[in-house]
Structure formats: structure tokens, C-alpha cells
Design a protein around this nucleic acid. Sequence first.
DNA 1: TACAATTCAATCGCGCGCAATCTATATGCA
DNA 2: TGCATATAGATTGCGCGCGATTGAATTGTA
Lengths: 149, 149
Amino acid sequence: MTANPSPLALSNQLCFAFYSVSHAFSRAYRQFLDPLGLTYPQYVVLLVLWEQDELTVKEIGDRLFLDSGTLTPLLKRLENAGHIRRARDKKDERQVRISLTETGRALREKAEEIPKQVGCVLGLPVDELRALTEQVAKLRGRLHESASP
Amino acid sequence: MTANPSPLALSNQLCFAFYSVSHAFSRAYRQFLDPLGLTYPQYVVLLVLWEQDELTVKEIGDRLFLDSGTLTPLLKRLENAGHIRRARDKKDERQVRISLTETGRALREKAEEIPKQVGCVLGLPVDELRALTEQVAKLRGRLHESASP
DNA sequence: TACAATTCAATCGCGCGCAATCTATATGCA
DNA sequence: TGCATATAGATTGCGCGCGATTGAATTGTA
């Protein structure tokens, strides 16, 4: 794979790099998330809610590029764990609004150490991390555009 | 998420960027893989086999950072589709050796157009793609090292 | 040669990701 | 107002990823 010399396979290389690094990241986070009883996708949903509470399922999905097929069962698990509440919006009964419980809000402090610890193993200067993040987000944007023209 | 100003959240940003871009890539590949009846992970396994046939499950797993729990059922599906054969190694009965069928080898030609088509939407110069791929692979290496010291 | 330790693949269980479909609610328009 | 259309979320089905365990084959070693 990584030894393929063909320049035509370049997007294959890049795609696989992202595919494998995202799993590697997920594994790296797991050692810190396991003690909290969270998976990485659940953690990301909580990150969103810690930043802005009372979002609807759709709003969470827009931020994370996930649909209700993924989010509904995930949110139910977070609800069963006692971290969030799910309630139909009174003004628009189609929507389900997600709110943090006290437990869910409290989890934030413990979770705040995680990115620091993971960041250590990356061994890259902050500005490089920032540049890389931007570059990757830009690629994601292009892929999304081309998917829904 | 992307609006979080805290520098502490930088590895969160980067991890999420990889997480979301890898799904976006997988969706981009899907439109080309669907007609071939392949998923992205199946395609990646075939890429490996097209480069070197007669690998064992472990050897495939080493190249793709996947274990038998993922590969065994995936390979069975590729076998059912007629693309590969699975057979115990005569010299070491613990190993299962994977070989391409004629159908599986023939699939390569159709698949060869895919990275080109995906590459078009990325809109990045070749050397930038190459640099990005290397940088991401390096990060993956660091994450793997720190996982198994 | 016995027998413990290691290696390889298979199996099981669970949580995503996502396409497709369904239901309920809201909106737009004649 | 009445009905078509659109939207939000839930549900179903399938294919991963992966931790944990199992069973069989091999290797290392006393």
C-alpha cells in the first residue's frame, strides 16, 4: 500500500492515511475515554453540547456530519448513562431537543484533560497542528461539495 | 466544534478533522465502489492483494492495521462475491492464505479509474497531496508507538 | 520427547455510520 | 381552509472496527 509507486494511486494513499489515522486517534482516545464510560463519537457529541446546550438532533448532526440513524441510538445510550435528556420541542413537535444533565455537565472537567494528554504523543508544534487541521477541514469541505452539488 | 477557540482543544480539533474527513472520503469512494459491489474496506484489501497476492490474513492485517475480528468476516464476503479464495497454509496450518480469483484480478482494471476520479475533486497539487499523506502517516506512527510501548 | 508458551484465525458482542423507509408534524400554496 | 410538500426524528438492515475469548497448530525449552 504505502509502497505503491504509481502517482495515480495518490488519492488512494491519502484516503487510506486518513482512514487509518482516524482509527489510530480513536484508539488513542479510548484509553482515556474508557474510564469515563464513553466512546469517541459520544465524547464528540458531548463536546458539542458543552459548547452549546439545548441543541436539536439535527443541529448536532449538522455540526458533526452525522444523521439521525447514527445519532438517535447514540443519544439514547447517553441518556441511559444519565448524561443527557431528550425531549420533544414544545413549539415544534418534530424536533427533539437535547439537554445536559448535571452529571453530563460535570463530566466536562474530567474530559478536559484528554486533549492535552493525547496532544503530548503527537509531538508536533502547535502551529503545525493548526495548519494541518485547517488543511484537512478544507479537503473535507471539497469532498462534501462534490457529494451534494 | 470548529469554532472552539481554546488552544487546549487543538488535538480534539485535529482528531475530529481526521474522523470527519475519513468518512467524507469513504462517501466519495462509495459512488464509484457501489457499482462494483465493494465497500471501501473491501477495496483496500483488494488493493493490497493486487499489489501482492497469496498473503496471509495476518499479513493483510499488518498492512492495514486491522485484526482478524474485522478481516475474517470481510474476507468471507469477498470470497462469497467470488473475488478471492481462502485456504489453510499446508506448511503452517494456523495460517489462512488469501488468493485472488480470476474475477478478483479482473476487477483491478475497473478499479484503477477510481483514485483518478476522486483525486479530481480534491483540487490540490500533487506534491501537496504527497506531503500531506506523509505528514498524516507520521502522526499515525506516533499514535501507534504510544499505544504499544 | 513432554509440555508450557506463543501464534494464528475464528467467534462473539457492542457501537457506530449510513442508506432506505416510515411516521408525525409543520409549512406552502391554491 | 384543504391538501400537497417538506422536514425532523425513529427504525431497520448491513458492514465494519475492535476488545475479549476460544481452539488449533507451532515453537521453545527443560
